[in-house]
Computed example of a mutant assay.
Amino acid sequence: MVLGAVAAGVVVGLGSLGDAARAAGPGIPHGTAQVVVGTGDTVWDIARRTAPDADPAAAAAHIVELNGLRSAALRPGQMLTVPAA
């Protein structure tokens, strides 16, 4: 159900990240998208879904950086910018 919530989270837009994306690490897509956080989602889970070819720790750190998060705590309904091809 959690996967469905994020998968159903409408991708609102795609963008380009420039230098931050290039420095994010191997396997992390250079583009970005917006997703809605579902109940029980963690940054790690979202990182694994949005950057499946990347090291999950690096992808999670990139999501934290993209969104200026001070912690990995997320709220259902929160919009996050995530890596996307």
Rank of each mutant, 00 (worst) to 15 (best):
L17D: 11
A47G: 11
L69C: 02
Q34M: 15
I46P: 02
R75M: 05
A72Y: 12
M79I: 15
A85V: 08
A24I: 04
A7K: 06
A7I: 04
R48N: 03
Q78M: 11
S16E: 04
A73W: 11
V10W: 02
A23S: 13
D45W: 06
L14E: 15
A33P: 03
V12E: 13
L69D: 00
A54F: 07
M79A: 10
G40D: 09
A20N: 01
D41T: 02
T39Y: 11
A54D: 04
A47D: 07
A7W: 03
R75D: 10
P29W: 06
G9L: 09
I28W: 02
V82I: 02
V82H: 04
N67P: 10
A73K: 13
A7E: 05
P29S: 01
L74T: 04
G68N: 08
H30G: 14
A51Y: 01
V6Q: 10
M79C: 03
G15I: 09
A23E: 07
A73M: 09
H30W: 13
G18N: 09
L14I: 09
R22Q: 12
H62V: 03
L80P: 03
R75A: 13
G9Y: 13
E65I: 01
A58K: 09
A5G: 15
M1G: 14
W44H: 10
T81G: 06
P52Y: 00
V6P: 03
I28D: 05
V6R: 15
G15A: 04
D19Q: 08
P29M: 00
I46F: 09
R49P: 00
T50C: 08
V35F: 01
A51R: 04
L80T: 01
E65T: 14
V43E: 05
P76D: 13
V43K: 01
N67S: 11
V64M: 08
A23L: 12
P29D: 07
R49W: 15
A24D: 05
A5E: 15
A8Y: 11
A54L: 12
P26Y: 14
V82A: 01
A5F: 14
G13P: 00
W44M: 09
T50S: 12
V43C: 02
G68T: 10
G27L: 10
V12I: 11
G4N: 01
G40H: 13
A59C: 02
A54G: 11
T50F: 06
V37S: 05
V35L: 04
V35Y: 05
T81A: 12
